Amino acid sequence: MTPSDLLLTWYDAHARDLPWRVGPADRRAGVAPDPYRVWLSEIMLQQTTVAAVMDYFTKFTTLWPSVDALAAAHDPDVMAAWAGLGYYARARNLLKCARVVAQDHGGVFPTDHDALLALPGIGPYTAAAISAIAFDRPATVVDGNVERVMARFHAEETPLPRAKPILTELAAALTPAERPGDYAQAVMDLGATICTPRNPACGICPLITDCAARAQGIAADLPRKEPKAPKPIRFGAIYLAQRGDGAWLLERRPEKGLLGGMLGWPGTDWRTDAPPAQPPLGANWTPLPEEVRHTFTHFHLRLSVHVAQVADTPAPDGLFWAPLRQFRAADLPTVMRKAYQLVQSSQALPDP
Score class of each variant (00 low, 15 high):
residue 2 T to Y: 07
residue 8 L to Q: 02
residue 10 W to L: 08
residue 10 W to H: 08
residue 18 L to T: 09
residue 21 R to K: 15
residue 23 G to K: 11
residue 30 G to S: 00
residue 33 P to A: 13
residue 38 V to P: 05
residue 43 I to N: 04
residue 43 I to T: 12
residue 45 L to F: 03
residue 46 Q to M: 02
residue 46 Q to T: 01
residue 60 F to G: 03
residue 63 L to H: 10
residue 70 L to W: 13
residue 73 A to M: 02
residue 76 P to R: 09
residue 82 W to M: 13
residue 87 Y to C: 12
residue 91 A to N: 13
residue 95 L to R: 11
residue 96 K to L: 14
residue 99 R to S: 09
residue 100 V to G: 11
residue 100 V to S: 11
residue 106 G to C: 10
residue 106 G to Q: 12
residue 107 G to Y: 00
residue 109 F to M: 10
residue 110 P to H: 06
residue 120 P to S: 10
residue 124 P to V: 12
residue 128 A to C: 06
residue 132 A to R: 07
residue 134 A to D: 07
residue 135 F to E: 10
residue 139 A to S: 09
residue 142 V to N: 01
residue 147 E to R: 13
residue 147 E to V: 02
residue 149 V to Q: 03
residue 150 M to L: 07
residue 152 R to W: 05
residue 153 F to E: 01
residue 157 E to H: 01
residue 167 L to Y: 02
residue 168 T to E: 04
residue 168 T to P: 01
residue 169 E to Y: 01
residue 172 A to H: 09
residue 178 E to D: 10
residue 178 E to C: 05
residue 199 N to Q: 06
residue 199 N to S: 05
residue 204 I to Q: 00
residue 205 C to D: 06
residue 209 T to S: 00
residue 211 C to V: 01
residue 212 A to F: 00
residue 217 G to P: 03
residue 217 G to M: 00
residue 220 A to W: 04
residue 233 I to Y: 05
residue 233 I to R: 08
residue 234 R to T: 09
residue 236 G to M: 02
residue 238 I to N: 05
residue 239 Y to D: 03
residue 241 A to R: 05
residue 248 W to R: 13
residue 251 E to C: 13
residue 251 E to K: 14
residue 251 E to M: 14
residue 253 R to M: 07
residue 254 P to L: 07
residue 259 L to K: 07
residue 267 G to N: 09
residue 275 P to S: 12
residue 283 A to E: 13
residue 284 N to K: 10
residue 285 W to H: 12
residue 290 E to N: 15
residue 292 V to Q: 07
residue 296 F to T: 14
residue 307 V to P: 12
residue 308 A to M: 01
residue 318 G to P: 13
residue 325 R to E: 15
residue 329 A to H: 08
residue 335 V to F: 01
residue 348 A to L: 05
residue 350 P to Q: 15
